[in-house]
């Protein structure tokens, strides 16, 4: 099997994690270092082993990008719109509370993904009702109201 260039990212990420934890570990008391040290050595060793495997594969079979396999059929616009909407949804919950944000988020994403308006409305009503009855009524979870709504209520 050829070495994939995308795996370089995996190795770099793992070494970075090791370095980060090692740097912070040195500030700890000796007794608290035992287990983190063990896991850092383990991760470092395994990553190095994988690096060696990669290099052997590169020498024997050559190198390939790997991006075309990892991101096969990738729809960048759709993916990043959904990701951005998810992050905005989180921010919106903090300011406007759970229910308002959920309705806005679901409507935006469903319409963007070309779900017909009638199905959009039905989906939103079903999900909001499910959460209201299952979480708020049955489990007694108080869902976030939002700082803006709280301020307006005062």
């Amino acid at each position: 099997m050829k070495m994939k260039k995308t795996d370089i990212g995996v190795v770099v990420f793992m070494y970075a994690v090791c370095a980060f934890f090692y740097f912070h570990m040195t500030k700890l008391k000796a007794s608290s270092q035992t287990y983190p040290r063990f896991t850092i050595i383990l991760l470092f060793g395994l990553t190095t082993l994988y690096l060696i495997q990669m290099l052997v594969a590169a020498k024997k079979h050559g190198v390939e990008s790997g991006v075309d396999v990892v991101f096969k059929d990738f729809q960048p616009k759709q993916f990043f719109v959904c990701l951005a909407a998810t992050i905005l949804y989180l921010v919106c919950i903090y300011f406007f509370g759970f229910y308002i944000s959920t309705v806005i988020f679901m409507a935006a994403v469903l319409l963007y993904l070309r779900v017909p308006p009638l199905f959009t409305v039905i989906t939103i009503v079903v999900i909001v009702a499910l959460i209201f009855f299952a979480f708020q009524k049955f489990l007694g979870v108080k869902l976030p109201v939002g700082t803006v709504i709280k301020a307006l209520q005062k």
Partner: peptide, 30 residues
């Protein structure tokens, strides 16, 4: 999948929030 994407997202959000009623839990989940 167009319907599943927002529905599962909302359930992930509410599920992780329900544990300690802390928005930070949603940040960790995300």
């Amino acid at each position: 999948d167009a319907i599943l994407i927002p529905c599962v997202t909302v359930l992930c959000f509410v599920g992780s929030y329900a544990i300690h009623k802390n928005i930070m839990d949603i940040v960790v989940m995300l």
